[in-house]
Amino acid sequence: MTRALQATALVAVAGLFVLLVWRLTHQSHPPKIGGPAPAFTAKRLIGSGTIDLASLRGKPVVLNFFASWCEPCKAEAKVLEDAARQYGNRVVFLGVDYHDVTGDGRRFLSAHDITYPTVQDGSGMIGDRYGLTGVPETYFIDARGRLVGEHIKGTVAHQQHAFFDGIKAALKP
């Protein structure tokens, strides 16, 4: 009987060890600049259907995480929209509405005249893949799908140098 108890304890400890290893190997690590941009497919915030990041391969992408409840996001909305209009078809601007109520996100886009496509990330899954620490954050992805430039934590309105440098880096062939 003692052997049975020892075996049970051993199995329990082994199970906990497997859980620990699984947890450590499945932790999300922030992606590295120069490495591939984490893939995702997400529902559009306005209209139907989804957007797959992979489908944008071949064009530089400015990926902006925001939320309607985030005050600094309001401050940078105009800078992003103006830049999207300035670069037109040369750069794809893609908004990611992070941990937000869908209706609030839609009202945010309308209030700030955002015309570029935006996807929903209510669960925060996309944000986790990018190792998001908060909103707003902006990433730059080149035509080959690699993260380039310096990813911007906080509003781009106060870091416009880094913002436009990031776009230029994404535009490089």
Binding site: A67, S68, W69, C70, E71, H99, D100, V101, G103, D104, G122, S123, G124
Partner: peptide, 21 residues
């Protein structure tokens, strides 16, 4: 969703929007 506490314990902006919803 941002601070992982229950809504009644949280004053985070995201929690406030969800409470409003």
């Amino acid at each position: 969703p941002t601070c992982h506490t229950t809504l009644d314990q949280s004053d985070a902006p995201a929690a406030q929007r969800i409470k409003h919803f």
